[in-house]
Amino acid sequence: MKLKADGSVERYKARLVAKGYTQKYGIDYEETLAPVAKINTIRVLLSLAANLDWPLHQFDVKNASLHGDLEEESNSDHTLFLKSDEGKLTTLIVYVDDIIVTENDAEEQLKLQKYLSQEFEMKDLGDLMYLARSKIGIFMSQMKYVMDLLTETGMLG
C-alpha cells in the first residue's frame, strides 16, 4: 500500500497476482489481475542492458489493481515483450503497474512511450531508480531505497 505523508493510506498496490487466462466463470472471472515479472526475467533484462550499455527507463502506469492468492506456477514469463525491427531491438517488462524499457535506439523508446501513453495514463519516472552503473556492471542499492522509504514515512530518526 502507498501511504500519504500523514501515514494514512493513499492507495493499495498489488504484488501477488494470478494470470487472467486461468480465471473460471462464476468463481474469479470478474477479478482484476496484474502481471508480475519473474526475478530471473528481470535479471536477464538488467544483464542485457549492462552488457550492451543500453539505458533502462521506467514508467508507472496509473491503474487500479487488486490482488489474490497465487495457486499455480508457470514456467514461462508473460511479462516480457520484445520488438525487433531492422536491427532495432526494444524490450519491455511489466511488473504490476511499472514498466521497464531498454533498447538500442532512443527513437524507438520514444515511439513506444507515445503509443503506450495513448492507451494508458502513464507517468515517466526517467532512468530506473536505485540503480548505479560502472564499467563492471549494474548495481541496485537497497540502502538508498530503505533510506528513501524511512524519509517518506517520517521514521528516519
Score class of each variant (00 low, 15 high):
Lys2Ser: 10
Leu3Met: 07
Lys4Glu: 14
Ala5Leu: 12
Tyr12Leu: 09
Tyr12Asn: 05
Lys13Asp: 02
Ala14Arg: 01
Ala14Glu: 01
Arg15Glu: 03
Arg15Phe: 08
Leu16Lys: 07
Ala18Ile: 06
Lys19Met: 12
Lys19Phe: 12
Gly20Tyr: 07
Thr22Pro: 00
Thr22Met: 01
Tyr25Glu: 12
Tyr25Met: 05
Gly26Cys: 08
Asp28Val: 00
Glu30Gly: 08
Glu31Ala: 12
Ala34Glu: 06
Pro35Val: 11
Ala37His: 07
Ala37Phe: 02
Asn40Asp: 12
Ile42Glu: 00
Ile42Gly: 08
Ile42Lys: 02
Val44Leu: 15
Leu46Tyr: 01
Ser47Arg: 07
Leu48Gln: 01
Ala49Ile: 02
Ala50Phe: 00
Asp53Pro: 03
Trp54Pro: 09
Trp54Thr: 09
Pro55Thr: 07
Pro55Gln: 10
Leu56Pro: 03
Leu56Phe: 11
Leu56Ile: 12
Phe59Pro: 03
Asp60Arg: 06
Asp60Glu: 15
Lys62Ser: 09
Lys62Met: 03
Ala64Asp: 14
His67Pro: 04
His67Phe: 13
His67Tyr: 07
Asp69Val: 13
Asp69Trp: 11
Ser74Val: 15
Asn75Glu: 09
Asn75Thr: 12
Asp77Cys: 03
Asp77Met: 10
His78Gln: 14
Lys83Thr: 06
Ser84Gly: 02
Glu86Arg: 08
Gly87Pro: 09
Ile100Lys: 00
Val101Glu: 05
Val101Asp: 00
Thr102Tyr: 06
Glu107Ser: 14
Gln109Arg: 12
Gln113Ala: 15
Tyr115Leu: 10
Phe120His: 02
Glu121Ala: 13
Glu121Arg: 08
Lys123Glu: 10
Lys123Pro: 12
Asp124Gln: 12
Leu125Pro: 01
Asp127Glu: 15
Leu128Arg: 01
Leu128Lys: 02
Met129Lys: 03
Met129His: 14
Tyr130Asn: 11
Ile136His: 11
Ile136Asn: 15
Ile138Cys: 05
Ile138Leu: 15
Phe139Leu: 08
Met140Gly: 14
Met140Pro: 06
Gln142Arg: 14
Met143Lys: 14
Met143Leu: 14
Met143Asp: 15
Val146Glu: 08
Leu149Ser: 14
Leu149His: 08
Leu150Gly: 04
Glu152Phe: 14
Thr153Phe: 09
Gly154His: 01
Gly154Glu: 04
Met155Arg: 11
Leu156Gly: 11
